[in-house]
């Protein structure tokens, strides 16, 4: 069990001593019981930090945002930024470090272990507790405890946990400056269980499935916006030039390659999502945020999981395992599979 007060004290301490300029964490939100991300800069604000099953956001996203806004660095005096990170979030920080997004000294990781549980899937909760809108959620051993108007409701965590958490193998943040919570043995679903089930289906059925999914995509780009790895200033689907410098010529502006159209059509939607999956290969840490925020419920994790498993099984590559690892697609091994080549 994580002692929230200890976490708050830690955050206050490092702000107090000036070791960091800001702490990115969660606080009580304004949308129902869900927590919301917050950046605090004063020690006294640490009291507002929370840690509960609704801390689903991958806060590494905000480290990325931080870097994109140099002006903001003035606020915390260019000091390192602390981030409260779950196992998956810490892996995301590792990938960002791999990609030189910032230096190891620029970030202070306050690890929080999900221990024997994970974060809440609100859609599942609606099925487990139909009609109930809890005011708060808390961890309690293997259970989630919800505060409702009719008192406490206790739900076994595995019944209301995110799918991603059920398959998680990195619930304890490996990369950290300080860590709260224990590394607890977990016994939920085998990694890639859903993926393996899906792969069993015949090709025609898989295509029908994806066709249905991608026809629904409205290209709101929520998946891209929430992803800490989608930090390019200009995305492959942007048909306008987003990166324009004084040196950019008119010809360059006119000549942007339009690999994929920005508007929603099946072919372009699938082109976009496939490109995204390929661009995330070896980088996606399966935080599952893209899937959580998708307004039309496209199971995006399945695509990313597929790449993650191939990276692991075909290339022995574990995204976010080490800062020193070269990128998956920037490296190779002599015994990479090649049987598919004629």
């Amino acid at each position: 069990m994580i002692d929230l007060n200890a976490l708050r004290t830690q955050a206050a301490d490092i702000l107090e001593t000036g070791e960091v300029g800001a702490v990115i964490g969660w606080r009580r939100g304004s949308r129902g019981m869900a927590a919301e991300p917050v950046a605090i800069v004063a020690p006294e604000e640490a009291a507002s930090l929370v840690w509960d099953p609704t801390c689903f956001h991958n806060l590494a996203l905000y480290l990325v945002e931080e870097r994109k806004k140099p002006a903001q660095r003035q606020v915390h005096g260019g000091k390192p930024i602390a981030i409260v990170a779950k196992g998956c979030d810490a892996r995301a920080v590792t990938v960002l470090l791999q990609e030189n997004h910032f230096g190891r000294d620029d970030v202070y990781v306050i690890g929080v272990s999900c221990e024997g549980t994970g974060v809440l899937d609100e859609r599942k909760l609606a099925q487990v507790l139909p009609g109930v809108e809890p005011d708060g959620a808390a961890f309690d051993g293997d259970n989630f405890v919800f505060a409702t108007s009719e008192g406490e409701r206790r739900v076994p965590a595995r019944e209301a946990m995110m799918d991603r958490c059920l398959e998680c193998r990195n619930a304890h943040p490996k990369l950290n400056n300080v860590v709260f919570g224990e590394e607890t043995p977990r016994d939920f679903d085998a990694p890639f269980a859903a993926l393996k089930r899906f792969e069993q289906r015949p090709a025609a059925e898989r295509w029908q499935f994806w066709q249905r999914q991608f026809e629904r995509c409205i290209r709101c780009f929520a998946c891209r916006s929430v992803c800490p790895m989608c930090y390019c200033d200009e995305c492959v689907v942007d048909s306008i030039n987003l990166v324009v410098t004084p040196e950019t010529t008119a010809a360059e502006k006119a000549d942007r390659v339009r690999w994929i159209e920005r508007s929603a059509s099946r072919a372009d939607n699938i082109g976009y999502h496939m490109t995204r999956a390929l661009h995330l290969a070896g980088r996606c840490v399966d935080c599952g945020e893209c899937e959580r925020v998708c307004p039309v419920n496209i199971p995006l994790r399945l695509l990313n999981n597929k790449m993650e498993r191939e990276a692991r099984e075909a290339f022995g590559y574990e995204p976010g395992a080490s800062i020193d690892l070269p990128a998956l697609v920037a490296s190779f091994r002599d015994d990479d599979p090649g049987q598919f080549i004629r």
Binding site: A203, R206, L278, L303, K306, E310, F315, D336, G338, R342
Partner: peptide, 29 residues
């Protein structure tokens, strides 16, 4: 070609996974 083998393996796998006929993409030496 070692880079190609790794990168395009992922493309092949992804296409197949999405239910696109695997015969559509081919690599040879």
């Amino acid at each position: 070609n070692m880079h190609a083998r790794r990168k395009l393996y992922l493309v092949k796998e992804l296409l197949e996974f999405a239910g696109v006929e695997p015969e559509r993409f081919r690599m040879s030496w």
